[in-house]
Amino acid sequence: LVRYRTISKIPQITLNFVDLKGDPFLASPTSDREIIAPKIKERTHNVTEKVTQVLSLGADVLPEYKLQAPRIHRWTILHYSPFKAVWDWLILLLVIYTAVFTPYSAAFLLKETEEGPPATECGYACQPLAVVDLIVDIMFIVDILINFRTTYVNANEEVVSHPGRIAVHYFKGWFLIDMVAAIPFDLLIFGSGSEELIGLLKTARLLRLVRVARKLDRYSEYGAAVLFLLMCTFALIAHWLACIWYAIGNMEQPHMDSRIGWLHNLGDQIGKPYNSSGLGGPSIKDKYVTALYFTFSSLTSVGFGNVSPNTNSEKIFSICVMLIGSLMYASIFGNVSAIIQRLYSGTARYHTQMLRVREFIRFHQIPNPLRQRLEEYFQHAWSYTNGIDMNAVLKGFPECLQADICLHLNRSLLQHCKPFRGATKGCLRALAMKFKTTHAPPGDTLVHAGDLLTALYFISRGSIEILRGDVVVAILGKNDIFGEPLNLYARPGKSNGDVRALTYCDLHKIHR
């Protein structure tokens, strides 16, 4: 019993810090008490220290592992850092350059016999395009090294910054494609005289377009951006097909006994025919423009016929181009109408809503002055909100995010209106959640004399007048207030005048 009563005193000691020596009952000389009392004092002292730490809000209350900052290894790049964003855009520009100039170089340097010394005699450094290609190869190699040090988000939505895990993730992902696209074939085969082989191998750079397509997928929600990307894709495919079309004609031209190829026909049409040795002929500019003209006309199913396939190889390629053109029509131009419709969806919704308003007016036989006010209010409210119901949009977000959005939407009023000066951010967040926005066209009466005042109004834009009878008592403008002081009276009061809008007004109100 003594032991039980001794232990039962522990909660009292913990909360009230009572010393055991003052209790005459606990001072009985028993061996059990002498053993338990020192333990009680020690526990009391420890609990006292913990309570003191909690009340003082000291940093040592938290466990040590929670006080440590997340460790980022040296030379690790955050995937959302500004440097990584700028670097990704730079790589994107280099990939676009590669997609345009690599097929052009591979096709127009394929057994090209233009006048001038061969590239091997001039030297590697004197070729501007080769120098640019070398810079692109170096940048792609540097990009691989950067990807080995860039964080990523795993399946659990955690940012991984450990170098080993980053390397394994990159090896399992895009490393092989990036490595093949970054191989400097110019340096590996330079001086061997195989410019045709170098041009063909350099087309491996186009593998990076797969990554670019995935990154550009984030802009699919913007109709104008999608339309622009589709047109660029169409032009890029036409450019690639033009390079292939020229390569076919250029390879067949020296081996044909009869002059029936499209390059021969082009030379005869523009007065620059090929001679018996295969030299001469149109310039590279004429060849490229004509090839691009043929691919565009074939892809769009126009086909004027002034550039036509004559050999079997050219006919087979033309059939493939027609098939590609039909697929592009289905996948690209078939979506253009939907994209344009999405661009004008706001206008369509406006006309639909206006039609419903006019049908309501016609069905209920609203008189002319009231009908005009109804239409003007709808037009003004639509121009202010673009038909978007803010309350319906915010309803799907958590309250903390709703408060931040409301604070942002009402920031101008909260910053410049005098009653809100000096208020804490928590108070402003709470008030912003209570605001209701209303609009009024010129001549609209917001409050009639004798109406119950259940709200306090803040003028965000425009001006109003307060009338008693036919006498203008006051004219209020931006950041002015009218209405009933909230919670100042037990019952809502009545208006002693009319409140009429002089201009288009936007008002925020808080109800009782």
Rank of each mutant, 00 (worst) to 15 (best):
E195H: 15
F83E: 09
T438F: 12
S161V: 11
P273G: 01
M256K: 15
V226Y: 13
I366Q: 01
A182H: 01
P128M: 07
K436T: 12
Q353N: 03
R208N: 08
S192A: 10
R71D: 07
Q127S: 08
Y293E: 01
D286N: 01
A225Y: 06
A119S: 13
V336S: 03
G422V: 09
Y124E: 01
G334R: 07
A106R: 01
L227W: 01
I189G: 13
I177D: 01
M328R: 03
T347M: 08
W382S: 04
K285Y: 14
C427N: 01
N335C: 03
N391T: 06
G303Q: 01
N265C: 03
A423L: 08
T437H: 11
S276M: 05
F190N: 12
K287T: 01
M322G: 02
N275M: 04
L90P: 01
V180Y: 01
G271W: 01
V393D: 01
P254N: 15
F228I: 10
T311H: 01
E376D: 07
G116I: 08
H380F: 10
I72W: 14
P254Y: 14
N275C: 01
M256C: 08
A182F: 04
G325E: 01
E121N: 09
S161L: 05
V159C: 06
R373Q: 12
L374E: 01
D88V: 01
S326K: 04
S326W: 07
H416L: 03
L374N: 01
L409G: 02
G443L: 03
V357F: 15
L266P: 01
Y170T: 01
V393L: 08
T76G: 01
N250P: 01
Q372V: 15
I144C: 04
P282A: 01
I96M: 03
S331G: 08
P82S: 07
E114D: 12
Y124K: 01
Y219P: 04
Q127M: 12
Q269T: 03
I189K: 14
L236N: 01
M390I: 05
S220Y: 10
R362V: 03
F101S: 04
L292D: 01
A330F: 09
A167H: 01
D217P: 04
W87C: 01
K172M: 06
T76M: 08
H79Y: 01
S192F: 14
G422W: 01
A330R: 08
H380L: 05
Q415P: 04
P82W: 08
Y219S: 05
W240F: 03
V180H: 01
L343H: 05
I189H: 13
N306E: 01
I244F: 01
N391C: 03
D286V: 01
K436R: 12
F435T: 06
F175R: 01
A107M: 03
W75Y: 06
K111E: 11
S81G: 12
N306R: 01
E196Q: 15
P309T: 01
K202W: 01
F101N: 03
T347Q: 07
A69G: 11
D143F: 01
Q372N: 06
S81R: 10
L327P: 11
E196Y: 11
T233A: 14
P163F: 06
V160P: 01
D217W: 05
I248G: 01
Q402P: 02
E112C: 04
F397G: 03
A181N: 01
S301V: 01
N391F: 10
T102C: 01
V393E: 03
P273E: 01
I248W: 01
V100P: 01
L209N: 01
N156Y: 08
F333K: 03
F171V: 13
F83I: 05
E121K: 15
H162V: 11
P117H: 07
A430F: 09
T445I: 08
I332E: 03
S313P: 14
I388V: 07
K285V: 14
S277H: 09
P367H: 08
F175W: 04
V95P: 01
F420I: 03
R358S: 10
T347H: 15
V159G: 01
K66M: 10
L266C: 03
I166E: 01
L401Y: 08
L145G: 05
V307P: 01
P441G: 09
G280L: 01
Y350A: 01
I198S: 05
V95F: 01
V336K: 01
W240T: 01
R429Q: 01
V180P: 08
Y377S: 13
E252C: 01
I260S: 04
S383W: 03
I77E: 01
I166G: 01
I244Q: 01
V226N: 09
A392R: 10
I96P: 01
I141L: 07
H439V: 13
G305E: 01
G281S: 01
L401K: 01
K436S: 09
L109T: 07
N312Y: 01
A330N: 01
F175E: 01
F234V: 04
L78S: 07
I146D: 01
R165F: 09
F185A: 04
V212Q: 01
V210L: 04
D444R: 07
R358F: 01
P103C: 01
T233K: 04
S298L: 12
V160H: 01
K272A: 01
R214I: 03
A432M: 10
W240E: 01
R165M: 11
G325A: 08
K434D: 01
M322A: 04
H79L: 01
M433Y: 03
P309H: 01
I189P: 13
H79S: 01
S383E: 09
G223A: 08
L94E: 14
H408W: 04
L92Q: 07
L446T: 01
L343A: 12
K395M: 08
L187D: 12
T352E: 12
Y246H: 01
L236S: 01
L431N: 01
C406I: 05
S345K: 03
K202F: 01
I183V: 10
H448R: 10
S161T: 12
I91E: 01
T311L: 01
T437Q: 09
T445K: 04
S298C: 15
S298T: 14
V321D: 01
L92P: 01
L134F: 06
Y293A: 01
K215I: 01
W382A: 04
D268P: 01
A247W: 11
L110P: 11
Y222K: 04
G199N: 09
S161R: 08
F296G: 01
V136Y: 02
C417N: 07
E196S: 13
L206C: 05
P117M: 15
G261V: 01
S276W: 01
L241Y: 01
N275D: 04
R349I: 07
V142M: 07
T150K: 01
F190G: 14
P442A: 08
L292S: 01
R371D: 05
I339D: 01
I366K: 01
I388H: 10
I138Y: 04
K287L: 03
V180G: 11
L188K: 09
V336T: 03
Y80L: 06
L188A: 13
N386R: 12
